[in-house]
Design a protein around this nucleic acid. Sequence first.
DNA 1: CTGAAAGCGCTAACAG
DNA 2: CTGTTAGCGCTTTCAG
Lengths: 376, 376
Amino acid sequence: MSADGDEARLRGEETDVEGTAGKTGGMSGGSGGEASTVRDVAKRAGVSPSTVSRVLGGTYPVATATRAKVLKAMRELDYVVNAHARALGGSTNKTVAFVVDDVTGPFYAHIARGVEEQASAEGRLCMLCTTHGDPQRALGVVELMREQRADCVIVVGGAWEDKAYQDRMTHFAHALDRAGSRLGLVGRPPLGEGVPATVVEYDNEGGAFAMTTHLLSQGHRRIAYLGRVPLLSTSRERLQGFTSAHDMLGLSPYPRLIKDGVFSRSYGYQATRELLASKADFSAIFAATDMVAAGVLQALREGGVRVPEDVSVAGYDDIPVALDMYPQLTTVSVPHEELGRTAVRLALHRDELPDSQHQVLGTHIVVRGSTRRRGK
Amino acid sequence: MSADGDEARLRGEETDVEGTAGKTGGMSGGSGGEASTVRDVAKRAGVSPSTVSRVLGGTYPVATATRAKVLKAMRELDYVVNAHARALGGSTNKTVAFVVDDVTGPFYAHIARGVEEQASAEGRLCMLCTTHGDPQRALGVVELMREQRADCVIVVGGAWEDKAYQDRMTHFAHALDRAGSRLGLVGRPPLGEGVPATVVEYDNEGGAFAMTTHLLSQGHRRIAYLGRVPLLSTSRERLQGFTSAHDMLGLSPYPRLIKDGVFSRSYGYQATRELLASKADFSAIFAATDMVAAGVLQALREGGVRVPEDVSVAGYDDIPVALDMYPQLTTVSVPHEELGRTAVRLALHRDELPDSQHQVLGTHIVVRGSTRRRGK
DNA sequence: CTGAAAGCGCTAACAG
DNA sequence: CTGTTAGCGCTTTCAG
């Protein structure tokens, strides 16, 4: 555990600033001066490199006087360890990789926060990669993280139900595992039996089922579902929940009211306009995500349709914006941060913790102002 | 430019999956199997390590037949370079560090996206650190990034106007510069003359000035300003714009209507409730950020105050949520992504690009439904 | 407690 | 075109 030093640094300790900066302040020519190394420090302190290394690690007994000399030399030289050299030593790398579609979505942002928090709580740095919804890029990025020898690689969302993609991902899972690392999958289904990966999901289908049941129980019968993305597991599961809820009451969804499209605000806007233009008959819209719902609300407002008087609208995700919409959005709440934290925790301690293979976190619906009993 | 290989990988190429995974698939015991090295590959291909290294880099002439043998061996061994060993070689490290308060804020998220995009466009990986608004932690994190030998360290927001903090940051700027790296400051003022750092700001004061002028020109005279954070430069500049706009018309702000508080939704909510409870007289509220404005709108709505009929509300940042609020928020638009992209670009190419020291991007107000002429 | 020596995995001169 | 030889900066035995 050479973490001592790092953690202190995370806390921002080290009260030394003094004239050090001035010493070399003049030569701000850039790429000129080489960074100082353990050897420089050793020389200056009149000790051996190993001793310097020992005070660095803090893990080994070093005479107080010696340690002081070394620390002084480090300060004077403005020394910082070279993380790569340290990582190369084979010992520890201390990095958590985080692969996500797009940091911009509040959905991802909150998971990212959970990941980052847990990572830094465990003394790890966090590498961030985005895939912009491109499965090819996702694969490339995971490979890159493998090169970085990250302690674990957390991949969020974007579970493409494509054979080649899944095979490739499965391959990575094994490769990472072999290297003592770990693949963590958040918000997506397991890759299969025996694949060494940590999966932290939330109940997509359950949430959609609950929401649909809620709408049906409010008397809605013609419910539009916006956001069927073929080949995306999240989408499939939510739609499944939507369908099963109908089934349970001996009803079935209207195919005409199920619209394909990506999970975006503008898609929600467009799809709703089309729905309106086609004079389709519906009393509620279930948007696959809150972002889609945002577009829906705007289109309805512009179309002069009142929410929830004329049409009820529900979303999925419960991102913070849901509170800022008008009316506030009824939606399915997902424990974003916890997903991120849990994934990192389980992936890092796969051997000590139970259930580190697969965990499903619950979801629940949150009823706000955008839905109400039909015709009330 | 050994980037060839990496970039291909970013594009997710490498079509090989085959039975490779199965080869060692059984031994999924974790930390067991060591990762293979250039030497293993060399041995298997019957060549020398250097040759392997050469095909890895792609930068050197290698006989087609040899290259094929090597590639085959790599595939069979499921080899991936060790980024740390490579970085240690001194050549290139290929990382951009990104330090931010909190990924969760849409404001930061968009800058993050810009940073990430530009970084990956330049073949760099992105390290993410959050500071949770703690200047001490920010300093610690920058130090950590220095250990990582990042090509550049981009710090967003949270410019504490605290002497010790600034000295320390200045020190880092020099240290990074000395190491051939670069400190990039986004959305915060320069550290001072001659400090080697790339600063990309946006016009905080100008935006606040424009917005305030707009409100005043609409007949508002008693404007509340919510979000004066002592010691935070962003806050000071916005408040300055607010004040100057008054000055220009020979007016002055009402001290009673200027409320201190952090930039958060809940602060906006609280402050507004207090304003309402104190029966203060005002016809407009200028919130220091859109998040604050979100809280303001909610409090007003709950208090039965109509927006914009009774009170006009303006924000700052133009984050996506501004469109989802009701009424849609009049605010100051900031080019978030461009800030991020520009910072990375300038920091990475400080020597080739002009004006790589300091750049101020413009802001402009966007008038939406939350403001209108007073008493209309 | 401290020093000397041997790598970690890769790249980069030099010679072939 | 390809093999040999040195390190990059740090940790880590193994002897003092």
